[in-house]
Simulated assay, not measured.
Amino acid sequence: MTEQITDEQSTDGRGDFDFFFGRWHGAVRKLADVSDRDCTEWVEFEASCDCAPILDGLGNFETAIMRPGGEAVAGATLRLFDPTSRTWRIWWMSTRLPGVLDTPVEGRFEGDRGVFEGPDEFHGKPILVRYEWDLLGADKVRWAQRFSWDDGATWDDLNWTTIWTRLP
């Protein structure tokens, strides 16, 4: 049985991440130590990912491989859409912290930009983390991360950014 999608469902936000379905190559640039607010040294490496819809379009799942310093790190992202609040929740997990599912960030897209924020912890200190998605064209997107150490009053400059380019 195929479920019929209503006009409201097609515009409620559940399709916000449809652009990311498929295979992607990532050019990653991150601060060498994202927890050091005075760090100015950047490291660059490559990544790849695959993203597919789940739960009849109410979510998607992404698997990624990153190679910082040549070492392969596997990661995965679970994104779930809540039609009642019209928001997305995003969970991250990786082989760097086996058995740990990060606390989700939450937010939505406004046009070609999505902002998602949530609580986190760095070296025992509570912080807020922000993920930013910027659509740069049909086959290019930027994902970025920032931290707030003062409960959202101010946000640090970017500490991690990836330019994703769609693979054929």
Rank of each mutant, 00 (worst) to 15 (best):
E106T: 14
D157Q: 12
E132F: 00
R146T: 14
E3M: 08
E71R: 11
G22A: 15
M66G: 14
E106M: 12
T63A: 06
R146C: 14
T77A: 09
P98K: 08
W42Y: 14
D151T: 01
G59D: 07
I5N: 06
R146M: 08
E3F: 00
T87K: 12
H123K: 09
V73S: 08
D18L: 00
G75V: 07
F45R: 03
N159E: 06
R113D: 02
L158G: 02
T154C: 06
P119R: 15
D102Q: 12
E117S: 15
G69L: 06
L97R: 15
C51R: 09
W149I: 05
S85R: 05
R113E: 14
V73I: 14
A47I: 01
W164E: 14
F147S: 05
D18F: 02
G152P: 11
W133Q: 08
S94M: 03
E62W: 00
R86T: 03
G124L: 04
P119L: 02
G137V: 03
T11C: 07
R23H: 09
Q9G: 04
E41C: 00
H123E: 14
V73C: 04
D120R: 12
I90V: 14
W164P: 10
D7M: 11
G59Q: 05
F21C: 09
P53E: 08
N60K: 02
I5E: 08
T84K: 01
P168W: 03
T77V: 13
R142Y: 01
A52K: 13
G111S: 11
W88Q: 04
A153Q: 15
Q4G: 00
M93E: 08
W133N: 13
L136H: 06
A74Y: 05
S10M: 12
L97D: 13
A64T: 12
G114F: 00
N159S: 11
S94E: 04
L97A: 14
Q9P: 02
D50M: 07
V115G: 04
S85D: 01
P119F: 01
K125G: 01
V73N: 07
D139P: 03
T161L: 07
G22S: 12
L58P: 01
D36K: 06
F45C: 11
D102F: 06
V105R: 12
A72K: 09
L101M: 15
G69P: 08
P104W: 05
G15L: 09
I127D: 00
V28W: 04
R79V: 06
P68L: 05
P126H: 02
